[in-house]
Amino acid sequence: MTYAGNLIGQRYDDYCRDHRILVEGNLAMVERYGIDLLSCCCQPFSEAADCGAELEYYDNQPPSCRNHLLKEPADLLTLKRPDPHGGGLMTERIKAIELYKKTAGDTIPIQGWVEGPMAQASDLRGINEIMLETVTNPEFALDLMDWVTEMEIEFAQAQIAAGANLIGIGDAAASLVNPTYYADEVAPREKKIVDAIHDAGARVRLHICGSIQGKYEAIKNLGVDLLDIDYLQTVAEVREGTGSTQCLSGNIDPVRGIKDSTPRQIRADFAKAHEEAGENFILAAGCEVPPETPEENVVAMFDYARSAS
């Protein structure tokens, strides 16, 4: 994301708002490093913005949302579901997929992106508010996640119709709730999105920022094609928790293990993660590759991947 924007010398706010810049950045990543994926993921607030939330943009980082759209739970009653083709940021993502398809054809998988139910609920309501409301106003929290789930299914279907082969679901805030709440309330809603994506003919990647310890069984039952793990657990632990057939990707610490590391250490860390994962494994950073990462470190990631595959 931010690394791709930097690579073509573009401001990240432009990268997030103009699909042509996003596509140019990712195609440059393919050309420079031989990366095997064209991604549309750029920032988490596209759907919230199209619902009416005001974003703040920065030159070199993802936008933020200072004033969340749902000031009160009752605001959900009047919240209008955005049209993915309505000309907003969701449409930019769909246009990016169409442009990828036109430019690269079927040579490289195209990854669309939606937010998961807990993450999008946080984007619309505020992370502190929705965390408290999972306990103090559970009906509202569930209603909001249901509303979000329907919106994300429609958005995912629109991206698949445009040519996406894979849809990433980012459910960052899901790591913050306890395993019981996740299994009983969040995972079933994630599962609805997963099933809808599969029904539409695409594959699913799930990324949950933060720790997923204690949630392995529920995640395993989602049936995602790729589980993208953050750096807080060892690959060995996640492998044990999710089984040998679950395809995993990850999980080197983006700052200490990628940005601040050395090519030699990166190769060693990837070798360790690879050994722990065994089969069904895709090498990646534990989350985003920071934009300030030295190029030789990025090259080292791809060198290891090629030498090991």
Binding site: M131, L132, T134, V135, T136, V177, N178, Y181
Partner: peptide, 8 residues
């Protein structure tokens, strides 16, 4: 405890 419990 997770974040909701701590915030409460």
């Amino acid at each position: 405890y997770y974040v909701p419990e701590l915030l409460l």
